[in-house]
Design a protein around this nucleic acid. Structure first.
Length: 691
RNA sequence: GCCGAAGUAGCUCAGCUGGUAGAGCAGCUGAUUCGUAAUCAGCAGGUCACGGGUUCGAGUCCCGUCUUCGGCUCCA
């Protein structure tokens, strides 16, 4: 934490609205203290859409308390107190904190403990200041507005919990959120904007437009795609297949499960196990099980009789307890260490025992393990690596680009689940590119170009590329332990990014376990930030899988692997698209592309309507017919509500002229047009994926 | 996972300090035959998330579970 604290200079760069909101946080603290004088305050900064203050308090603040708190805040802003800044020596600040005077209205029996801690973390030599407004005094570097009255309009929004300094080992505090503006008009506009954003929320639209659903019995984070949502999925897959085919990819298919050992090889189990569903254990047949259990019994018996004689300290219950807590590997290491120190006679006895008992047992275990564990795959890469390995590869085969819309399952923490944006079953726009080091740059750039092409197609303008690198302190825990390769690969990626002039930000400690990655962040309508696409360089897995190609000099070399998913996952990408388009999809993506609305239900008219529907469907257009007895206005209202892209209204006038009356969602009535022209234009718009 | 809030018909929601579960839309049946955002009437629809408890009596109060939502990065 300490190394991430903002310098005084950075703080001074607060914008006007941040300054106002930071001041509102002080007013909030003032109000809370008026009601609960023993409140202990930690930090109260401005944030993106408002401010918060973290407080420790016996009383649980609930939204019902907001009115009371806001009333006290109102008094404080009405009083229009000056924000007064006082610079003081460190010792004075410490003594004030000791007397409970900081984040307080006056002297208190218990010290201002969080403030005390904060002062102690201020580097020597940095200026320490306090701010006063009315009776309230707080340790604060500022800056603030001139007077409390300058905070024109504010509102408390919600309360949540947060650990002090974000560390779960620290006490849990109540975080009171609010927002503030210069005046009431701006505050009202902000809340109106939030209301608008709520209408775009993919969870709400997904239900209204019948795109997907969740079911308790199926399980949390496991979306079910309704036919209308599935139509979008299929359009995206079509897009990906066409794009990838043109870029020289080949498609593959792999199962959703694999044996445990695959994930040991890939590194998922050591580095990624928390994000995987627990294994499925498949037992061998009964006959073998009985046989195996007898072996185990015999082995236990041997253990009881022989091993303590060889290792007398095993008679000590403490030593035995320690060993029984060890993993098989640790036990072996312990044994090896003991054997080295044994006398010749004991060594011989031990070796004989090993030959007679352990080795046959061990062999049996290898030939037919007693249980077989399968894991649901969390990533497609291990399976793809096996496809690479299935056929001998030459340098002439590279780059090899294996693509699959693979289904993966990840055991996300329950609190992380969020609509379609964070789920436990996901289909990834995945591909793995195996290439030589020389080919890396052009392959990497081609992937980036593919991203940009997609973003242009979808009109995604606000995005940020994040280049995530490793943290040397976490090698071997979070990241594959090979410092040199990390640095080399990161340099390589950084070089390509710089040479190609791509705008990016670099963030440490967020790489994949097998290599650095580039993520594309976008923002949902609700303002949440999401990684929509990803591009990762893998220097670890090809090696651990023993992947090779025969180079032109007749030597075997290990290829590099680029993992890429420009369209991310169906779940997150469609969740994003729903909000991006507010449910008003372009024709090519629209779940229902065309609805035909006959005026009345005379047989001749219905025949004409059906003929148009059949023609459109023969071209794979998702066209429906509303043959209900509803009135025209009702049919239109129904179609508009479902955001059907194109409505073809047909009455007798149209039928007689071989025409249709065109109505487009969001554009209204466009009048009667020749039937063939309208159909031709629909087909062209779909083919071009017109916006 | 942790802290907090919520869960009533397919959907949106009402249901007061405990006293016989309601509306609109959707659905079904019938009538209406109509030119660009909702024609009329009738019918049906519920183990009030699930499980336990308190009570003469629980949608309402208490406990547990499940699910969803808001947070858990910033930081005087």
């Amino acid at each position: 934490m300490a190394d991430e604290r903002k310098s005084l200079e950075q703080r001074a760069q607060m914008t006007d609205i941040e300054r106002l909101r930071h001041s509102a946080a002080h007013v909030l603290a003032t109000a809370i203290l008026k009601i609960w004088p023993d409140a202990q305050f930690a930090a109260g900064p401005p944030v993106e859409n408002g401010f918060y203050y973290d407080v420790e308090l016996g009383h649980r603040i609930s939204p019902e308390d907001f009115e009371k708190i806001e009333a006290e805040m109102k008094k404080e802003t009405k009083a229009n107190h000056v924000f007064e800044r006082v610079v003081l020596p460190r010792d004075d600040a410490l003594s004030m904190a000791q007397r409970g005077l900081l984040g307080a209205l006056g002297e208190r029996s218990s010290p201002s403990k969080f403030k005390l801690d904060i002062i102690q973390n201020i580097p020597e030599g940095e200026e320490i200041s306090i701010y006063r407004n009315g009776e309230f005094t707080d340790l604060c570097a500022g800056p603030h507005v001139m007077r409390t009255g300058n905070i024109g309009a504010f509102k408390l929004t919600h309360v949540a919990s947060a650990y002090y300094k974000g560390d779960e080992k620290n006490p849990q505090l109540q975080r009171i959120y609010g927002t503030a503006f210069k005046n009431k008009t701006q505050l009202d506009e902000y809340f109106a904007m939030l209301e608008e954003a709520k209408k775009r929320d993919h969870r709400k639209l997904g239900k209204e437009l019948e795109l997907f659903t969740f079911d308790d019995q199926v399980g949390p984070g496991l979306p079910l795609w309704l036919p209308r949502g599935t139509a979008i999925i299929e359009e995206l897959e079509k897009l990906a297949k066409e794009t990838e085919f043109a870029a020289g990819y080949v498609r593959v298919r792999t199962p959703n499960l694999a044996r445990e050992s695959l994930y040991k090889t890939s590194g998922h189990l050591p580095y990624y196990a928390d994000s995987m569903f627990p294994p499925m254990v498949v037992r061998k047949n009964e006959q073998f099980r009985v046989f195996w259990e007898n072996w185990e019994k015999k082995q236990n018996q041997l253990h009881e009789e022989t091993v303590p004689n060889l290792f007398p300290d095993l008679k000590d219950p403490d030593v035995r307890a320690k060993i029984s807590g060890m993993s098989p590997d640790e036990t072996n290491r312990w044994l090896e260490a003991r054997i080295v120190n044994m006398g010749q006679e004991a060594t011989n006895a031990f070796n004989k025992m090993a030959v007679d008992n352990f080795i046959p047992t061990l062999m049996m275990a290898q030939v037919a393990p007693v249980e077989d564990r399968f894991y649901l795959k969390a990533m497609n890469c291990p399976h793809h690596h096996k496809l690479y390995a299935a056929i001998p590869r030459s340098y002439r085969d590279l780059p090899l680009r294996l693509a699959e819309y693979g289904t993966c399952h990840r055991y996300e923490q329950s609190g992380e689940l969020f609509g379609l944006m964070r789920v436990r079953s996901l289909q990834m726009n995945d591909a793995h590119i195996y290439c030589t080091e020389d080919q890396f740059e052009s392959e990497f750039l081609a992937v980036n170009e593919m991203y940009l092409k997609y973003f242009k197609l979808f009109g995604i303008e606000k995005y940020v590329m994040r280049f995530s690198t490793h943290d040397p302190a976490k090698l071997g825990q979070k990241f594959v332990d090979n410092s040199q390769l990390w640095l080399k690969t990161e340099d390589m990626v950084r070089g390509v990014l710089q040479r190609s002039g791509i705008n990016y930000v670099e963030v440490p400690n967020e790489a994949a376990f097998y290599g650095p990655k580039i993520d594309v962040q976008v923002w949902s309508a609700i303002g949440r930030e999401f990684t929509i696409a990803t591009n990762q360089v893998d220097f670890a897995q090809p090696k651990s899988f023993g992947l090779v190609y025969k180079d032109s000099d007749n030597t075997e070399k290990t290829p590099l692997c680029i993992h890429r998913a420009p369209l991310g996952t169906h779940e997150r990408f469609i969740g994003f698209l729903i909000e991006h388009y507010a449910g008003n999809f372009p024709l090519w993506l629209a779940p229902e592309q065309v609805r035909i609305l006959p005026i009345g239900d005379e047989p001749a008219l219905l025949d004409y309507a059906r003929a148009i529907q059949n023609e459109l469907r023969s071209y794979q257009v998702r066209a429906e017919l509303d043959a209900s007895s509803d009135h025209m206005k009702t049919k239109i209202a129904n179609a508009e509500q479902m955001k059907v892209h194109t409505m073809l209204v047909i009455g007798n006038r149209d039928m007689e002229a071989n025409a249709v009356s065109l109505r487009v969602h969001g554009k209204g009535n466009l009048g009667a047009k020749p039937r063939d022209d309208v159909i031709a234009d629909i087909l062209a718009a779909i083919k071009e994926r017109r916006a």
